[in-house]
Amino acid sequence: MGGTVRCYCKYFGVRPHGLTLVELLVVLAISAVLLAIAIPSFSSMLHASRLRGAADILMADFRLTMTESTKRGDDVLVSFQRDSDGSNWCYGLSALASCNCREANSCLINNAEHVVRGTNFAGILATPTHSNYWFKSRRSTITAGNVTFTARDGKQLKVLVSGYGRIRPCSPSGNSNISGFPICP
């Protein structure tokens, strides 16, 4: 055996192992079709996940603001800033005075900056009904309104706040609906 390997496949009726060019092209074509079907679904799932994340953090911050207001016996607020188209947005928590989340150390709670930026939720627009949501410690009330988060694909998620501090998410009916959330009133 001098280093050459002979294939006796034709004598035993066995085909040599490997792929032909045609077989490889068929596999690539099928993969491309499956990928083309999966990408829009993945994109929609990614937008819905970002919407849920933005809404969850805002609801947690509203609850934190209510807790801080009760604990301090003073008013605490959530201040929004955004561009006119809603794409560049942020909000911050502050005691007693409105704050600018675009300025360093402007939004402080317990001597720590508390700011959430829209850049953490790429492609999500925020539209609050008010620029400031005041939590009043005396009556345990808040400025009633909502914040609407909108994804690039048109899906929406709202965070509703009642005047008595009930905070809940909802999604509008129709094409902008996200399943798993109650329909907005």
Rank of each mutant, 00 (worst) to 15 (best):
R117V: 12
F135C: 10
S140F: 09
C101V: 00
V147T: 13
L93S: 06
G86N: 08
A97V: 12
A38R: 07
D153R: 05
L21I: 15
P182A: 06
P172N: 11
M45Y: 15
T127M: 10
C184I: 06
N177L: 03
I167F: 13
R82N: 08
I178E: 01
S84N: 06
C99W: 02
E113I: 03
K136S: 15
V22F: 12
A32E: 09
V115T: 12
R102V: 12
V115K: 08
A29P: 05
L34H: 01
S137K: 01
A48G: 09
R15M: 09
R15S: 14
R168T: 07
P169V: 13
I183K: 14
D83N: 08
D153H: 02
L34Q: 03
A48C: 10
R139Y: 11
A60I: 05
A97N: 13
F181D: 00
D74E: 14
V33L: 15
T70G: 03
W134N: 08
D74G: 05
C99M: 07
A29D: 06
L34C: 13
K158T: 00
Y133L: 13
R139G: 14
L25I: 08
L19V: 06
L157N: 04
D74M: 10
G18Q: 09
P128K: 01
F42E: 00
V116D: 03
N105G: 05
G18K: 11
L157P: 06
A54T: 04
T119E: 07
D83I: 00
G180V: 05
A104L: 06
R166H: 15
A122D: 11
D75L: 03
C101M: 00
G145V: 02
K10Y: 09
I124A: 09
F62N: 03
P182V: 11
G154M: 03
N177H: 13
G13H: 09
L46N: 08
P182I: 07
R138T: 04
V5L: 15
T20N: 07
Y133V: 08
L51T: 07
T65H: 03
R52L: 05
L19Q: 04
N111S: 15
R72K: 14
A104N: 04
I39Q: 07
L34E: 02
P169Q: 15
K155L: 10
